[in-house]
């Protein structure tokens, strides 16, 4: 039983090299377990003080849509947790424009602040990472 210290006692010298991590989210929230699993990995890995970005594309866009109420399907609504990411110093959230538009959604429909980018910008973002985790 250990409790992560979340890097609070580490300084720049001892914490090692900071890598760029991108979490790619492509699945709708409740039909499969991918979205929740991704979120949990993101929260756990936040302890390692890396340069983290989250990308939402394809059906992954649905994860961060406002107004989710899961009481009647008896499943935990984990959408409020995306709003906690800021407290974990995870502030780079990207949404792919084409995916958003294909679903009839706009930037106002999301429960967190995101940067909307085109598919080609998304490709560049992916290419610029050290580690890409896809869910």
């Amino acid at each position: 039983m250990t409790e992560s210290t979340g890097g609070i006692d580490m300084d720049e010298e001892t914490s090692g090299v900071v890598k760029k991590f991108l979490y790619v989210n492509r699945k709708a929230p409740y039909g499969t377990i991918y979205a929740l699993e991704s979120l949990e990995v993101v929260l756990i890995a936040a302890a390692f003080d890396q340069d983290v970005s989250l990308a939402f594309l394809d059906d992954g866009i649905y994860q961060i849509v406002k107004g989710q109420h899961t009481k009647n399907i008896d499943v935990k609504n984990f959408s409020p947790t995306y709003r906690a990411l800021e407290g974990y110093d995870i502030e780079k959230l990207y949404v792919e424009k084409e995916s958003m538009e294909a679903r009839g959604l706009t930037e106002d429909d999301f429960l967190v602040d995101v940067k909307v980018m085109t598919k080609s910008e998304m490709a560049d973002l992916m290419a610029s990472q050290d580690v890409v985790m896809s869910f």
Binding site: E3, S4, T5, G6, G7, I8, L43, A46, A47, K76, N77, F78, P80, T81, R83, A84, G87, Y88
Partner: peptide, 15 residues
């Protein structure tokens, strides 16, 4: 209540 998770200790300390 707000975020549906218990915060990591680092986040708790800061908050």
């Amino acid at each position: 209540d707000e975020y549906q998770i218990a915060p990591a200790v680092r986040v708790l300390t800061k908050a």
